[in-house]
């Protein structure tokens, strides 16, 4: 089964399924998606940042702080590309059945733009300002500061100006809607979304 020419070399689908919420057939279906994404610009079975940008924003160019963080979190080996195994690992967190602790941790690392181990006020300001700019919306500095103040008053329990992982966990448990992007309902039904896996499958779940 390993090293099959049609599949990612050295990837053990059964092991990936065992270590994730996915069945073997679902891993195979996700491989169909991975093939499409990883060959969209450079046909090398690796997802480059431009390919992730193209999939998320329908444009291969342009800076985006969110894209950088998402890509970094997928790219576990920090070698500038997303391999299939890394793709499965990251998507596992977004599965409806994934533990909420994993979703909380992943979201924290997304928002921790500078990777300091804290979500800092400047980072939140930067994210809000970026979205305002992208959306052609305007907000006075006064109102923006008011929103940030209110958010930190709720989330930053020890009032040190930054949100620790423990504070983040307590905060999102009070506001679970903040984690809604951390669950992708598509992952519950990937074999239906990518039925072409059936032409390549070698196992029956």
């Amino acid at each position: 089964r390993q090293n099959s020419p049609r599949t990612c070399q050295y990837v053990d689908l059964a092991r990936l399924a065992h270590d994730s919420p996915f069945s073997v057939n679902e891993v195979e279906a996700l491989y169909e998606l991975f093939k499409k994404l990883s060959c969209s610009i450079i046909d090398d079975m690796l997802i480059h940042k431009e390919e992730l940008r193209l999939a998320l924003f329908q444009a291969p160019y342009g800076e985006n702080i969110f894209l950088d963080r998402v890509f970094d979190l997928f790219d576990e080996k920090k070698n500038g590309v997303i391999e299939f195994e890394e793709f499965i690992h990251a998507l596992s967190v977004f599965h409806p059945n994934a533990p909420i602790e994993e979703k909380i941790d992943f979201a924290f690392r997304l928002y921790d733009l500078r990777q300091t181990g804290f979500i800092e006020r400047e980072e939140v300001q930067q994210m809000v300002a970026t979205i305002l700019m992208e959306s052609d919306m305007t907000l006075s500095d006064e109102l923006l500061n008011l929103i940030i103040d209110k958010t930190f008053a709720d989330a930053d329990s020890d009032k040190d100006g930054k949100i620790s992982k423990a504070e983040w966990k307590a905060y999102v448990l009070k506001h679970p809607s903040l984690l809604k992007n951390m669950t992708l309902p598509y992952l519950k039904d990937v074999t239906t979304a990518f039925p072409s896996f059936i032409f390549n499958t070698e196992v029956e779940d």
């Binding site: 998606l33 499409k36 994404l37 999939a55 998320l56 924003f57 985006n64 702080i65 969110f66 894209l67 963080r69 998402v70 977004f94 997304l110 928002y111 939140v124 994210m127 809000v128 970026t130 979205i131 959306s135 929103i147 940030i148 209110k150 958010t151 709720d154 989330a155 506001h175 809607s177 903040l178 809604k180 992007n181 992708l184 598509y186 979304a193 990518f194």
Partner: peptide
């Protein structure tokens, strides 16, 4: 509606919404 900064970010940022990976594929 978006009095909470994180609510605003998670609702408005397409960058943190990975569902588009599965759309139009």
């Amino acid at each position: 509606k978006f009095f909470n900064a994180f609510e605003f970010i998670s609702s408005m940022s397409s960058g943190f919404d990975l569902s588009s990976l599965f759309e139009n594929k």
